[in-house]
Each structure stands twice: as structure tokens, then as C-alpha cells.
């Protein structure tokens, strides 16, 4: 559905060249749900804007829905849907009018466009707003309308740029439902950018981590978290002697994984940590080394980002957007630094 090779975009800002995207190779298959994850300014949106024909690449190629974005941008636009960061609906227009116009834009006749407008209004809980002027809607209502506009024509390839920014948790869950439904009922391919870690985690088949204009990881959330980073297994011993034994046992169970010791607390990142822990405790028991407490912290995508870049996504990027993400457990690198 999407193939890019060496996709690059530079911007010129006051005599300085900003390399926003530096040679991205990407392959997205039909029906996939892919999330671009990365801090602000990483190049996620710039990449998306090249794929949706809003920006011309500086170098490299991109084929979207079988069409080259540079050679035939108009044909790309016929095949995709796009929900940008801004408000798609014109502020001086009425909600219903904008939805009907959007349908007409994609070739629906007047009656079909009106029917479809009614459907998406209903789906996004905006039926009462049909005659309201867009500028009078609340921020959350406007965002829902943006998403409704982008889904009017049942796109088979949908791009969403930070779709859930400004939505409350309930509407974010609702958005997730709609994205999954679009995929289930219309076999749509979906590409979204997000800096909500939990959203990328819960929604995407594949997470593409972008930093400084490059793809630094590309895999399923499970594999990124478990294989790349591993769960944090930590055991607290009663004294230093026991702690040394715990450390030795951990090293034996997970060779090659660095074991951290802080006083009586011993920890290591181990793929499939939850299934390793019982074995570890059994082993310690047999040795006669009692454990005071034990816990497993599942890796998050933030841990993945930290592992890859040495920076936390939460600190480097989120600012305004981190309010309702789950709190991160402290990680090895944080403790070490």
C-alpha cells in the first residue's frame, strides 16, 4: 500500500537547512494499522505530509496506493483520506454543509452525500450539531467533526495526524472503535501519528519509531517491548549477601542481560520477564535464598524509545499531551544516570 525509498525532506529556515526527514524506507501492506511514534519535531508529520501530497519530497521516492506521489499527486488524493492536525471543517460553515460538501468532493451525488453526512454525524455523536456553525463547537466536538469528515468517503487508505489530541478518554476510545471498524468493514489501511504511547500500543499492528528524521525501530508493539527491551524483573533481598546470590541467579537465567544492583534491590530487563520470575524464585528457594519482594514491570513503548535513544519520550516530547497516559515505571537507564 505504501512504499518509500530514501524519502527525504529538507526545509530552509533563514539560510539554514533543516533536515526534517532523512531517508526513510517504509513498506506498509494492505490492511495494516501502523503508528508513527516519536517526539515533536521528529519528522512524523513531515513524512505524513509527503505521503498525502501536501509536501514534495526533497529526495527519494514514495508510492502510495500504487501511485507515485510526485508524478501523480492528484491520483494519490483520489485514493486516500486524510485527517490533519487542524480543523478540517471551515469555521464559518455549518457542520452539515461541510459534511455534504466533503461527500460531493468524493463524487457522491447530493442525496447520497446527505445520507452519508447523517451517518457519520450519528456515528460521532454530532447529530444535534448539524445546523450549528463550526466555530461554535467545543474543541472536542470540532475534533470529532474533523475525524467524521475524513471518514465520509470510506477511504481504503487513511492517514491521521495526531487524531486524538484534544479528545477526552471516552472519545479517544470511540475513535479507536471507528478506526478498527473502518479496517474491519472496509479493509482499510491506516497510518497514524501519535505521541500517545498507550494509543500506539493498543491500536497499532506495527509501531514505527521515528527520531531526528530517521526510522529507529519498526516492529509490532509486543516485539518492540518484550524482545527489544524486555520486562523489568526486580527482586529485593534481605541483605547484601542474598542480593549477590539473587544477582548471580538472574545472570544465569538471562545471559547477556545487564543486571543492576542498588543496595538489596536487584533487577534486569528480560524478555518474557513474567514467565521468568517464578522460575527465578523457585531457584532462589532451592538455594535457600529468601526474597523479600519481587515484581515485574512490563516494558512500555516509552521504555523502547528510551532504550533506543537514551531519552524519554515523555520528557522530550509530550509536554501538553501526557496527561492521561499511564505513569511509567522507573527504568534501568533512568536509575543508572
Amino acid at each position: 500500500m505504501i512504499h518509500t525509498r530514501g524519502l527525504t525532506r529538507h526545509f530552509r529556515v533563514k539560510d539554514q537547512v533543516v533536515e526534517a526527514v532523512r531517508g526513510i524506507d517504509l513498506d506498509v501492506a494492505e490492511g495494516e494499522l501502523v503508528a508513527f511514534l516519536g517526539p515533536n519535531g521528529a519528522g512524523k508529520s513531515t513524512t505524513l505530509r509527503m505521503l498525502t501530497t501536501l509536501l514534495t519530497p526533497t529526495a527519494g521516492t514514495a508510492e502510495v496506493a500504487g501511485v507515485d506521489v510526485v508524478a501523480s499527486p492528484a491520483r494519490v488524493r483520489e485514493r486516500i483520506g486524510f485527517i490533519g492536525q487542524g480543523n478540517g471543517a471551515g469555521h464559518s460553515h455549518r457542520v452539515g454543509d461541510e459534511l455534504v460538501t466533503q461527500g460531493r468532493t468524493y463524487g457522491l451525488d447530493r442525496a447520497a452525500a446527505r445520507t452519508r453526512a447523517g451517518e457519520v454525524l450519528e456515528a460521532f455523536g454530532l447529530s444535534d450539531m448539524v445546523d450549528r456553525k463550526v466555530s461554535t463547537l467545543s474543541g472536542g466536538q470540532q475534533r470529532r467533526l474533523d475525524i467524521a469528515m475524513g471518514m465520509v468517503h470510506h477511504p481504503t487508505l487513511l492517514f491521521l495526524d495526531e487524531p486524538s489530541t484534544g479528545l477526552d478518554p471516552q472519545n479517544r476510545a470511540n475513535l479507536k472503535e471507528h478506526i478498527l471498524a473502518l479496517r474491519r468493514d472496509h479493509h482499510a489501511t491506516v497510518v497514524l501519528t501519535t505521541h500517545y504511547l498507550d494509543e500506539a500500543d493498543a491500536l497499532a499492528d506495527r509501531v514505527i519509531v521515528i527520531d531526528h528524521g530517521r526510522v529507529i525501530a519498526d516492529d509490532t508493539p509486543v516485539r518492540l517491548k518484550s524482545d527489544l527491551v524486555g520486562d523489568l524483573v526486580s527482586v529485593t533481598a534481605f541483605d547484601d549477601v542474598d542480593a549477590a546470590r539473587v544477582a548471580a541467579a538472574l545472570e544465569a537465567l538471562a545471559p547477556g542481560r545487564p543486571v543492576q544492583r542498588q543496595g538489596v534491590e536487584v533487577s534486569a530487563r528480560i524478555p518474557g520477564g513474567a514467565s521468568v520470575l517464578p522460575e527465578l524464585l523457585r531457584h532462589l528457594d532451592q538455594q535457600g535464598t529468601p526474597a523479600a519482594s519481587a515484581e515485574v514491570a512490563r516494558a512500555t513503548l516509552d521504555d523502547v524509545f528510551l532504550h533506543l535513544t537514551g531519552r524519554s519520550l515523555r520528557e522530550s516530547a509530550m509536554g501538553d499531551a501526557s496527561v492521561d497516559t499511564t505513569p511509567s515505571t522507573p527504568t534501568l537507564q533512568e536509575q543508572a544516570s
Binding site: 498525502t52 501530497t53 501536501l54 492528484a74 488524493r77 483520489e78 486516500i80 486524510f82 490533519g84 492536525q85 487542524g86 480543523n87 478540517g88 471543517a89 471551515g90 469555521h91 464559518s92 461541510e98 466533503q102 468532493t105 468524493y106 463524487g107 474533523d146 469528515m149 475524513g150
Partner: peptide
């Protein structure tokens, strides 16, 4: 200009409208 600032111009640029 207003539509360029709010995003609706951008939205229309990605539709099939020539």
C-alpha cells in the same frame, strides 16, 4: 487566510478537488 490557519484549506488540498 483563516482557512489556511485553521486547517480546512489543508483538508481540501488532500481531496480530489483540482
Amino acid at each position: 487566510q483563516l482557512e489556511m490557519q485553521t486547517g480546512s484549506h489543508e483538508r481540501m488540498l488532500v481531496t480530489p478537488l483540482c
